[in-house]
Amino acid sequence: MIRLTIDNIAVTVEEGTTILQAARKIGGKVVPPAMCYYSKLKGSGGKCRTCLVKVVQSSAKDPRPMPKLVASCSTPAQDGMVVQNITSPEVVEARKGIVEFLLLNHPLDCPVCDQAGECDLQDLSYGHGTEITATEEYRREFPVTDIGDLIQLHMNRCILCYRCVYTAEQLTDQRVHGVLYRGDTAEIGTFIAQNIDNDFSGNMIDVCPVGALTDKTFRFKSRVWFLRPMDAYRDCRVCKGKAVIWMAGDEIYRVTARKDRFGEVEDFICNECRFDHKHPEDWVVEGPRSIKRESVISANHYLQKEDPGVIDPIKGTIT
């Protein structure tokens, strides 16, 4: 076991743990935001740069600081490491810059985007961005491409996190989409006209941090915060059948996987559960899904289970 401090809070983790995972163990505000890293997808991380942190002491053995900010998702923690996240003005500034880059070519179409209300990029820009847009340039515009009946691709919204590519690669054996071209014209696509269709393709929707991949069967049906998310399960031969059903009245509007407090899917679900079972009698309801208090989805609904309190490293109080 190794011991490190992040924003002056000590934590003990197993060797090989990344700084980000160590921070997640502490929880609360010291957890760096992550737009591309996904603990369940091998090879993910390092790309979006939102989780950059400052290492002021590399380890007990080597007390030198690291020369640059490092991606906490892919930098292993060391014994005696001293990390600054929100206690470092440099990190806060750099992160503002990263948010600005991610928003640079992202369309301001939240009012017509199905992801609104559960979008990591929205959360990121509220939490870590600035109010003003400095750019006056035209935003990047991709031609619209069709990838099948179940999933809607809006390339303009994509931040190239590569999560959907890893999902296709690691959950299925016939990946048909990938990252094409390069630089700021790189895009997610199939290159030739074809559908992305396999038992687990729907998970690409859940792992997408933005509204680039959304559920076509749920398109424009409802804003997510008007729905009641319920934990539910069903006997499924393909997956564990543990899902969240999003209801209004007695109707199921959509089915998604269950996400943990860091926004990651707990168990991937199959397309049959996601797309083919929209009758309440298909599911056994466990109860209301716990949603973060600060999420717009939990507004005006019901009280949620309390999260254990964590120390705010700047104020020194429990939040």
């Binding site: 979006c48 740069r49 810059g97 880059f101 750019t135 990252v179 390069r182 630089g183 700021d184 790189a186």
Partner: peptide, 20 residues
């Protein structure tokens, strides 16, 4: 800008922005 691989956001977006 032309040679950015496009993997990480500061380079992908920043080089194009500067060029414009």
């Amino acid at each position: 800008h032309h040679e950015s691989c496009g993997q990480c956001s500061p380079c992908r977006e920043g080089t194009g922005w500067m060029e414009k």
